[in-house]
Simulated assay, not measured.
Amino acid sequence: MALNPFNLLKTLAWRTTFAIRESGQALERLGCQMQGIYSHEEIINRHTPISPIKYDAPQISNSSFVAPSGLVLGKVSLGEGASIWYNAVVRGDYGTVTIGKNSNIQDSAYVGACSEFSPSVVIGENVSVGHGAVLKGCTIGSNTLIGMNTVISEGVQVGASSIIAAGAYIEENTVVPPNEVWAGSPAKKLRDLKASEKDYLRSLPERYRELSGQHKEIMELLELKQQEYAC
């Protein structure tokens, strides 16, 4: 079967431009070594963490933090002090995603919709979404903790000041009342929230806000450093 000449030209152009880019970067590294500049040894992420889709661009507060390897895409709104951590994905391509003040989406979590028929995602203020959690078309009340590797299905409503235990699976259209702890697969009420846990839920997001500020400062310094060497 003969190869399409147009596809052959596209392949040749791609490989040629790829070789040029890699050669340029190799020369830059060599030049930096010869000058005694070692910025090339730092990991420079080419990934674009904040990206529009079609006509929809994320609305990001100046005080929020998006890690270089995270992704915030499309119709997403991040409130003051909100943070999206490393390898976390927040997708507003199908429906809108609203994340409130001081809420944090931790490493490798996914927040978004599964299709154009999915409900919007609304995450209140001071919410902590644990590592590897999956939130699809749901509403999460303020001052809530979503444990690591939890899966929350479409149409779920989690009340304020609640804890969803690590590894829990909440079935579609489930309503979790406020001030409760849920666990299991499928998740069920475990018990009422303790007074000490309410204090913890209020303090956890502030710790993440402080930590995100430190990471943000580091990223800004690295960017300035790279710009300086590029001049």
Rank of each mutant, 00 (worst) to 15 (best):
T139E: 02
L211G: 09
S83T: 13
V90A: 05
S115R: 06
A13S: 12
V127R: 01
A133T: 05
I140Y: 02
G95I: 05
Y86P: 02
V158N: 00
T48P: 01
E171M: 08
A26Q: 09
D107I: 03
S118L: 05
T16Y: 12
Y110P: 04
G155C: 00
A187S: 06
A168T: 05
T17L: 11
K10C: 13
G147N: 02
G100M: 04
V175K: 01
W85Y: 11
E217L: 12
E206C: 10
S77K: 14
E217H: 11
E228A: 15
F65C: 07
Y38D: 09
R209C: 08
I37M: 06
V158Y: 00
E228L: 13
S23K: 08
I123S: 03
W182L: 01
F18T: 11
M148Y: 06
L193Q: 00
L193Y: 04
V129A: 02
P58A: 13
G155P: 04
R46M: 10
C231E: 14
A82T: 07
L211W: 13
R29S: 05
Y86I: 01
E41T: 06
R46K: 10
V72W: 00
R207E: 15
G31L: 11
V111Q: 03
S115L: 06
I84P: 02
C231F: 08
G184A: 09
W85D: 13
T144N: 04
G36R: 05
V66R: 02
T139N: 10
G81A: 03
M34T: 09
L193P: 02
G155M: 03
N87H: 14
S115E: 10
Q35P: 01
Q25H: 10
G159V: 01
G74E: 03
F18R: 12
S77V: 14
G112D: 03
S61Q: 09
L211E: 15
L78Q: 10
K188S: 12
L201F: 06
E41R: 06
T144H: 02
S23W: 09
K189N: 02
S161N: 15
E180P: 00
I20S: 04
G124I: 04
L201H: 02
P205G: 07
E125Q: 13
N7T: 08
V156T: 07
K136H: 12
E197M: 11
R15T: 04
Q227E: 15
K194L: 14
L222T: 06
L211K: 14
S83K: 12
Y110Q: 04
S23N: 07
L9T: 10
P68W: 00
K54I: 12
G184Y: 00
N102I: 00
E206K: 12
A113H: 13
G213T: 07
E80D: 15
S63W: 09
R209S: 07
W182C: 00
M148G: 08
L8F: 08
E154K: 05
G124E: 01
D199G: 11
Q226D: 09
I43F: 09
R21M: 07
Q35T: 08
T96W: 07
S64E: 09
G213V: 05
S64V: 08
